[in-house]
Amino acid sequence: MTLTFTRRTAVSLLTATAGIAALSVPASAQDTIRAISAFPQTLAFSESFKGFVDLVNERGQGVVQITYAGGPEMFPPNQQVDAVRRGVIDMQYGPASYYLGTMPEADAWVGSTVTAAEARENGGFALMQGAFKTKLGVELLAHLDTGVEFHVYTIGEPKRTEAGGVDLSGLRIRSQPIYNAFFEQIGAIPVSVPVPDVYTGLERSTFDGSGWPIIGIEDLSWDKFLRYRIDPGVFQTDLAVVINPAKWESLTEESRALITAVAEEYEQISYENFQTMATEIDARVKEKGMTVITLEGEAADTFREQAFESAWARMKAAGSEHYDALRKAYYGR
C-alpha cells in the first residue's frame, strides 16, 4: 500500500535544499532528539509519525531536529515508554493503552468521542499530560491520529440476532487489552496474539477474527483472510507522542515552543489525513470482496455503547482519581 502525505513530500524538498545551509550551523546551536515508534516503519501509523518528525525538522532548521531511529526492532513496543522514562531514548510514539496497568487513564482516549483539538480546548489533554507525567514519568506532547475507529473483523460470516445485532458467541477473536471486556460482553473469546503472528494465525484459521482499525488492515495483508467487517466502528486510536522529562527541560525555550506548536498543528493534520485514508481504504477493501455488515438503529447504538462503556468501566474499576473529569472531557456523559 502506498501512503501519500502531501506535507511529507513538501518537507522532503525543503530539507534537501536546506541541507547545505544546515551544515554551517554550529552543533551547539541545535537541539537533537532521537525518536522511535511502536509500529513497523512501513505501517501507516509510523508513516504519520514520520510526518510529524518531518514537520518539526522543517520548522526547526538550526533550532531542533528529530532523528527517527526505528520501530519495535529497537525496543519491544510495550517497553518503549519505560526506555523514554529512563532516558535510553528521547521520544516515542505509540499506544497509551499498552500501559493500562500503570496508567488506567489511557482508557480516556480509547473511550473518547472527541478530537484531540476538542480535548485541548475542554481541558482533557491537560489532565492526560498530568497522568502521563505522574504515572509513566514522561512528558506528553501530542495525541496524534485521532478519529480512527476500531472494527471487529471475521473470517466467516457472523450469525445475526433477531434484534438485528451480531452473534459472536464462541468465536475466537484476536484481541488486546482494550477489547477484552467488550468481546466478552458480546460472547466472543478474546485471544492474545502479537501483531507479527496474526497473519499466520489467520492463514491457519487458529482464530476466527480480529479487532483492528480500518487503517493498516491492508498494510498487514490481513484483509486476505478477514472477509467480513462489522460496522459501526467503536473506540478511538490512543496514539501518544512522549518525551523524556529531563531531555524536554534541556531543550531551549525556542525548541520547546516550536515542538509544542507543531504537535498541536499536526494533531489536526493527522486527523484529516486519516479521515481521507479511511474512506479510500473502505472503498478498496469492498472492491476486493470484503462484506460490511452494518448494524442499524438500536442494535448499532447498543453495540457502540457496550464498547465505550467497557473502557470507562475499566478505568473506574482501576480507581482513577481523574475518572469523572476525564469522562466529561472525552465522553461528555
Rank of each mutant, 00 (worst) to 15 (best):
L127F: 07
M128Y: 10
Q129F: 06
G130R: 07
F132I: 09
T134L: 10
L136M: 13
L136C: 01
G137Q: 13
E139T: 08
L140R: 08
L141N: 01
D145Q: 14
D145T: 07
T146Q: 10
E149G: 00
E149M: 13
V152R: 02
Y153T: 06
G156T: 08
K159Y: 03
T161Y: 04
G165I: 07
S169V: 04
G170H: 05
L171V: 01
R174M: 03
R174K: 14
Y179M: 13
F183G: 06
G187I: 08
A188R: 02
V191H: 06
S192N: 06
V193P: 04
V193D: 08
V193S: 01
V195R: 08
P196K: 05
D197P: 02
D197V: 13
Y199M: 09
Y199N: 04
T200E: 15
T200K: 14
E203S: 15
S205L: 11
T206Q: 06
F207E: 07
D208A: 14
G211W: 13
G216F: 06
L220V: 08
K224V: 15
F225P: 06
R227Q: 04
I230L: 13
D231C: 07
F235T: 10
V241S: 07
V242D: 06
P245M: 01
K247T: 05
S250C: 12
L251R: 12
L251G: 08
E254D: 11
R256Q: 14
A257W: 11
L258R: 00
T260Q: 10
V262G: 00
